[in-house]
Simulated scan of single mutants.
Amino acid sequence: MSFADNMKGFVDKGKQLAAENSDKIEDVVDKAGDFIDDKTGGKYVDKVDKAQEAAKKAIPDK
Rank of each mutant, 00 (worst) to 15 (best):
M1W: 12
M1I: 09
S2D: 12
S2H: 06
S2L: 04
F3Y: 13
F3N: 07
A4R: 11
A4Y: 10
N6K: 15
K8Y: 07
K8A: 12
K8M: 07
F10H: 11
F10Y: 09
F10Q: 14
F10G: 07
F10K: 15
V11R: 15
V11T: 12
D12V: 02
D12Y: 03
K13L: 10
K13T: 05
G14H: 06
K15C: 01
K15Q: 12
Q16G: 03
Q16N: 09
L17Y: 04
A18P: 01
A18H: 00
E20T: 13
N21H: 13
N21W: 14
N21F: 06
N21V: 05
N21L: 11
S22R: 15
S22Y: 01
S22T: 05
D23Y: 09
D23A: 15
D23G: 13
K24Q: 13
K24I: 06
I25Y: 01
I25R: 01
E26T: 14
D27H: 12
V28I: 04
V29K: 01
V29Y: 00
D30T: 13
D30N: 15
K31C: 03
A32K: 02
A32V: 14
G33T: 13
G33D: 07
D34H: 14
D34K: 13
D37A: 09
D37N: 11
D37W: 08
D37R: 14
D38V: 01
D38I: 00
D38W: 03
K39I: 03
T40M: 09
T40K: 15
T40C: 09
T40D: 08
G41I: 10
G42M: 10
G42R: 13
G42Y: 08
K43P: 08
K43I: 10
Y44H: 12
Y44R: 11
Y44V: 10
Y44P: 04
Y44T: 06
V45G: 04
V45A: 08
D46G: 11
K47R: 15
V48I: 11
D49M: 07
A51K: 14
A51G: 09
A51T: 11
Q52V: 04
Q52E: 14
A54V: 09
A54N: 03
A54G: 07
A54E: 04
A54Y: 09
A55W: 01
A55Y: 01
K56M: 06
K57M: 11
A58V: 00
A58E: 03
A58Y: 00
A58P: 00
I59H: 10
I59K: 04
P60E: 07
P60F: 06
D61I: 05
D61S: 09
D61E: 12
D61P: 02
K62Q: 10
K62T: 13
